[in-house]
Simulated assay, not measured.
Amino acid sequence: MRRILVVDDDRNILDLVGIHVSRAGYQVLKAEDGFRALEILESVLPDLAIVDVMMPGLNGFELTARIRDDYDIPVLLLTAKGELEDKEQGFQAGSDDYLVKPFEPKELLFRIAAILRRYDKPADSILQVGSITINLKSFEVTAGKSTLLMPLKEFELLTLLASKPNQVFQRAAIMEKIWGYDYEGDEQTLNTHIKRIRERLAKIADDVEIATVRGVGYKLEVHS
């Protein structure tokens, strides 16, 4: 059974989310603040954390950043705010998705399922594309004696493209897969990540590159 950590200082919201998540077949762990959440994480590693943004002491953005630094689990942020800058701050902290209160329980469960699908890794946890090897457990990209440790979103983006070499991924599909289907940020974010990945790959492998398909999206090409 998959475990989900719910963190919210509002006891009513905490119980409400817990009830619906539990009914959907998940094991629920509850924390009324960020510090208690960190205590739970030291002993139990959940499959996903649902984190309220507006909490005293350690707010949701700060807790998300701590989780991203120390644990390999996705984070869904809950907040009463829907402004674009708040979403940007959440994604910059490392969240995987963002849900604005009040929300429908069905939408919450849909997002949970979608995040867990995105986070599922192949059984062997290894992707081999040309001369590069992508290890989905250690988050390392290697080629020969060279090793890259990439920021999470760059790693996820490279892994997505490498999962189907030479196949074109549409920009909208990439944004949905990596940043969530309702991400409202500028597409320049994707351009910037692609540019950085290209620069990293160029340093360790000359047979693998990301090609732009104008008006459509990107693909990972392997040259012999």
Rank of each mutant, 00 (worst) to 15 (best):
Q89E: 06
T192N: 05
V216R: 00
M150V: 13
E88Q: 09
E187Q: 08
A123Q: 04
N191I: 12
F139I: 04
L77S: 01
I4V: 14
L152S: 04
L160G: 01
D97I: 13
R23Y: 10
E176P: 03
A143K: 00
K195E: 03
Q188C: 02
Y26F: 11
V6N: 02
L201P: 00
D15C: 12
R23A: 13
T159I: 12
R171C: 03
G57C: 10
G25T: 05
V75I: 04
L149D: 03
E107M: 11
E187A: 15
L152N: 00
R11G: 08
V213T: 06
P105F: 10
E199N: 03
L220S: 07
E62F: 00
V208S: 02
S146A: 15
L48M: 13
D124L: 04
L148C: 08
L116C: 11
L58N: 00
S95L: 10
K145N: 09
V129Y: 00
I134H: 02
V53K: 01
L41H: 09
L160E: 02
H20N: 06
P165R: 10
L76T: 07
I67A: 03
I50A: 03
Q27L: 11
N166D: 06
M55F: 09
S224C: 14
E140D: 00
L16V: 15
A80K: 02
R23V: 12
N135W: 05
D69G: 06
G180P: 00
L108P: 01
D15V: 13
N59C: 05
G18S: 08
L152R: 04
A113K: 14
D9E: 00
E104V: 13
I4R: 06
F61W: 06
G185R: 07
K145P: 01
D33L: 13
I13W: 01
N12M: 14
V21R: 11
I134R: 09
V141W: 03
L116Q: 02
S22A: 15
S22L: 14
L160T: 11
A80I: 12
M175D: 02
D9G: 11
P165H: 08
P102I: 09
Q167H: 12
E156I: 14
A211H: 10
S95M: 09
R118H: 06
Q128C: 13
A211E: 04
E154R: 12
L157M: 08
P46E: 02
V17R: 03
A143I: 06
F61Y: 08
M1H: 13
G57P: 04
L16D: 04
T64S: 07
V213A: 12
E221C: 14
K195S: 09
G60D: 02
G82K: 03
V28D: 01
F169T: 05
Y98Q: 01
N12H: 10
Y98F: 11
S138A: 15
A31S: 04
M150C: 07
E107C: 15
E184F: 09
A31P: 01
L220F: 06
L99S: 03
G57S: 07
D9A: 14
S22K: 15
G34A: 07
A211P: 00
